[in-house]
Design a protein around this nucleic acid. Sequence first.
DNA 1: CTGAAAGCGCTTACAG
DNA 2: CTGAAAGCGCTTACAG
Lengths: 355, 355
Amino acid sequence: MVAWGSAYGGTMAGIRELADHLHLSIGTVSRALNGKPDVNPETRSRVLEAAAALGYVPNQSGRSLRQGTTNAVGFMIESGNDVAGNLDNFFLGVFDGVQIVLSRHHLDLIVLPCSTVEDPHQYLQRMVARRIADALIISATHRKEPRIELLQKAQIPFISLGRSAMPDDYAWLDLDFEGYALRSVDRLVAKGHRRIAVGMPGNDINLGFVFHDAYRAALARHGLAYDPQLVLRAASSDQGGYHIAHDLLTLPDRPTALILIYEFMAVGVYRRLQEEGLAPGKDLAIIGFRESPLASFLTPRLSCFRLSLRDLGVGLGESLLASMPAFADVYPRGIVHKVWPMEFVAGGSDAMDVR
Amino acid sequence: MVAWGSAYGGTMAGIRELADHLHLSIGTVSRALNGKPDVNPETRSRVLEAAAALGYVPNQSGRSLRQGTTNAVGFMIESGNDVAGNLDNFFLGVFDGVQIVLSRHHLDLIVLPCSTVEDPHQYLQRMVARRIADALIISATHRKEPRIELLQKAQIPFISLGRSAMPDDYAWLDLDFEGYALRSVDRLVAKGHRRIAVGMPGNDINLGFVFHDAYRAALARHGLAYDPQLVLRAASSDQGGYHIAHDLLTLPDRPTALILIYEFMAVGVYRRLQEEGLAPGKDLAIIGFRESPLASFLTPRLSCFRLSLRDLGVGLGESLLASMPAFADVYPRGIVHKVWPMEFVAGGSDAMDVR
DNA sequence: CTGAAAGCGCTTACAG
DNA sequence: CTGAAAGCGCTTACAG
C-alpha cells in the first residue's frame, strides 16, 4: 500500500516539518492552526503563512485518533434497490443542500452507497464500526428499521430521511405523503371521481404505508368505501407503472383516477394506456408524485407536487447538526420531526371532469 | 464533539479490552485478527470468537495512522454541474460495479460529491490532503484537467472516468464517443442523409471534443462537407435539447438528421418538434446517446447505444486496482486506457429514409 | 505565551 | 508462538 504522506514529493509536510521550519514546537503550531487563544498573534500569522506556503493540511487520521472526531458526515444511500430508477437526480439535489450547511462548519459530506449485494444493516454496522463519520444520514427507511436501533445503540448522532413505524424518539425529515394523498383525493373527488386507485410499491418501505393510510382516511372523509382491489402494487419503476395500468384496466367497474407514489411509474401507465387507445387525463385521471423533468415532457403534462431538493438538503443538514452535541447550540431545535411540504403543480393528466 | 468509542455503551470495545479479556497482549490479538502467520491456530480462533462476541471492529483512524492506508477508494462526482440532469441513475449503476470489485479486497467505496458552490480542483485538493482514500476515481473530466496533475503530483493511484486533452500517462476509461459518432453518421448516411447536425454541450468537458472530432472525420469519410452551423450547442438537459431543436429549425437548408451527445436532450427535441407539428423519425432522424429508461418511453422510441453500467463499474474498479501497488499483481494490466464499447439499439427515431 | 510530554488505537519489527 | 515497545500525526492538559 502506498503511504501518501511520505510519498508526497516533499510538497506535503507533516506538522513536525512545519514546526522545525518555524523553530517552534508542534504544540504551538497546532494551537496556532486551530485558532486557540493564548497564541501570540504574530506567531499565529507566521504559522498560518508557512502552512499555506508548504501546503500543509493536518492528517485527518491523526486528528481523528486524538479527537475522536472525523469532521465528516456520512449519507447512506442504496445504490441497487427498487427505488433506484427513481433516485435519479433526487439525491444529487439533496446532497448539494446538505453540503451548503456542512461547509459552514468545515464538515465534509461523504456519501456511502450500499450496493445491491450487501445487506443495508450490515453495511451500516461496518461504517459505524469504522467510525467513518461523526454523524449519519440514512434514507429509504422501512417500517421496521433496524438501522435506527443500531445508530441509537451506538449513540451516533443521525437523522433519517424518511420515517419508520418505530418509536418516534429519533430525528427525521420526511416528504409529506399524507398531504399528498389527502390533497390528491380531495382534488379528484371534487372533479367527480368515486373510484380512485393508487399505485405503490409492494415492499416494506415506510412511505408506502403512510401514503396508503392517508389515502384510506381521505376516502373515508368523503364517504367513499375503501376497496383493496384499488390498491395496485408494483415495482417503483416505469415497468411497475406499466403493470399497474395493466391491472387497473382489468378491474371490474374500472377506476377513473389513479394516484401514483412515484412519478416514474407514470411513464409506464401512459404507455399501457396508449396501447389500449386510451388517453391520460381523458380516460383516466393521473396524479404523479414529485415534479421532475419527467413531468413536463409527458403528454399531457403530469400533475404532481413540487419541492426544492436543495432546501430539503439544507433542512436535513441543519436538523442533523441540531442533534450533534457540538453544534446543538447553533441549531437549537432539539430532535427534529418534520414533514416537508410540497406545492401542487397542475398538469393535464388529471384535467378530466367526470361529474 | 461526541467520542463514539467511549460512548459506545460498552458494546464496542477497543483492542485493549479485547486483549485484557483474553489475557493476551494487544500485539498477539492484532496479529490473530489480521491473519498473520506465526499465531497459534487455537489462539487465533479464541481471538476471532471473542472479537465477534464483543462486536470488536478495529478503529480505522488507528489503523490508518499506523499503516498510512485508509482501505477506502474515493469516487468524486459533481453534484451540481451541467450534467446533473443526466447523471440520473448513471452513477448509481457504476458505483455498484465498482463495489463488487472493491469488496473482494475489503476496500470500501466512498463517494465524494463536489457541490455546486465549490471549485472541483480545490475540493479534490482538500480530499487529497485529508487522505480520505487510498485511491481515487474522478469523472466529468475537462479538456484541460488540473485534477489529473494534482493527483499525479500527489502520487495517489487514480483512474479517470473520461479522458482529457492532456498527456496520456494516466489511467482512464471512457465511453466510446468516437464509435458513437462514426456509427451514427454511417447509419444516417446509408439512409440518404446529407445534412447531419449534432447537439452537444458548449462547455469544456472533454467528451464533447472527442465526439465533435469523430463526427467531422466521419463526414469526411463520406465526402460530406463539415458545416459549423450544424454543430448546435446547448446545456446537457431537456431544456438544452429544446433550444437545439429550435435552432435547427431556423437553419437554412434544414438538416434531416440530428445526433445528440446526451439522451436527455432528446426530450426537448421531441417537444419542440411537436410544437411545430413535426414528427421525430419522420421529419427529423434522431439518434440519442445512451440507452436509458427514457429511450423506451419516448414515442417513437429513441435510437441509442446500450452499455452495462455495472460492467463499466467493474472495469473501472479493476483498472484502478491495477494502478495501486498493493493490488497490481492481482490485476496486472498496467496503466489502463480503455474505450468502453456500446451496442446499437434501433428505435423509431431514426427510421426515416430520405433516399 | 510557549514547550515538553502524554496518549488517542492501532500494527509491526524485535526479542525471547 | 507471544510479549513489550516503538511510533504513525496529531491535540491538549500541564508546567513554566
